[in-house]
């Protein structure tokens, strides 16, 4: 009976993942490997960025009049924020669908999301990345890594660490069913600062980690060390987010850009 419970939990989490995220690895790989009916529009310089803003990016975000005359770096930063906010919304709905999450203390649900969403965002972002760039605007655009690197400091430092993480993470060859459990494990984490009912969360975390381990054994029978490798990735993601939060703080201090109120809430007093 325990094994069948675990399989049910894995299936429920996978279904919640497919239902709540508009992009997933299977979709992204279809586009990145050139198998989609329409190839993405490639953004590789200022000119193609402007063209994209009039087409694919314009559909994704309302590139308001206030931004039109701002420099490219600020406009790209704005787009990144819009994508993050949308993913936080999706992650919240996903979390609510993880059995047991909604029964947790409401303050603890807030804390788990506050600390977990960026780790989850960067883990899932890897699905939309290859060594040359990143899918944007629901897969209708592709922005090159070189172009992002060529932006002025500090914006040029925003994405490169995520690419470096993604290349190592993608070499593990996880599929969406593995990623669903991995993202659930990121969110339901018992050692976030300020949690009230740690035991309750640890119990939930343990059941998800157990399911993840079992699922990896059956889904990747030839890769014995995949589970410990993934646990290490949880540590790497925490470091990636700490560095990201510092960079955002620097941008907020030195640049004349606004930060979305939802992201402000999340970053405030984070680390």
């Amino acid at each position: 009976p325990q094994l069948s419970d675990q399989k049910t939990l894995a299936r429920q989490i996978y279904e919640a993942y497919l239902k709540n995220f508009n992009m997933n690895k299977a979709k992204a790989r279809t586009i990145l490997t050139g198998k989609a009916s329409t190839p993405p529009f490639v953004i590789h310089d200022m000119e193609t960025l402007q063209l994209a803003e009039q087409t694919v990016l314009g559909k994704m975000v309302d590139t308001a009049a206030a931004l039109r005359d701002r420099e490219a770096e600020v406009r790209i930063f704005h787009c990144c924020q819009c994508t993050s906010v949308e993913t936080v919304t999706e992650l919240t709905e996903f979390a609510k669908s993880v059995p047991g999450f909604s029964n947790l203390d409401l303050n603890d649900q807030v804390t788990l999301l506050k600390y977990g969403v960026h780790e989850a965002i960067f883990a899932m972002l890897a699905s939309s990345m290859n060594k040359d760039g990143l899918l944007v605007a629901y897969g209708s655009g592709f922005i090159t890594r070189e172009f992002l690197k060529s932006l002025r400091r500090p914006f040029s430092e925003m994405m490169e660490p995520k690419f470096q993480f993604a290349m190592k993470f993608n070499s593990l060859e996880l599929d969406d069913s593995d990623l669903a459990l991995f993202v659930a494990a990121i969110i339901c984490c018992g050692d976030r600062p300020g949690l009230v009912n740690v035991t309750h969360i640890e119990r939930l975390q343990e059941s998800i980690i157990q399911v993840l381990q079992l699922h990896l054994l059956t889904n990747h029978p030839d890769n014995t060390f995949l589970f410990p490798k993934l646990l290490q990735k949880l540590v790497d993601l925490r470091q990636l987010v700490t560095e990201h939060a510092l960079l955002v703080q620097e941008i907020k201090k030195t640049e004349d850009t606004s930060l979305h109120p939802l992201l402000q809430e999340i970053y405030k007093d984070m680390y």
């Binding site: 936080v88 919304t89 303050n107 649900q109 807030v110 109120p261 809430e265 999340i266 007093d269």
Partner: peptide, 21 residues
């Protein structure tokens, strides 16, 4: 905590849009 995270709290309670910049 709820006071400092009004939008997150709102998202958890219902499916409202977090709004635009």
């Amino acid at each position: 905590l709820k006071e400092k995270h009004k939008i997150l709290h709102q998202l958890l309670q219902n499916s409202t849009s977090p709004g635009h910049l």
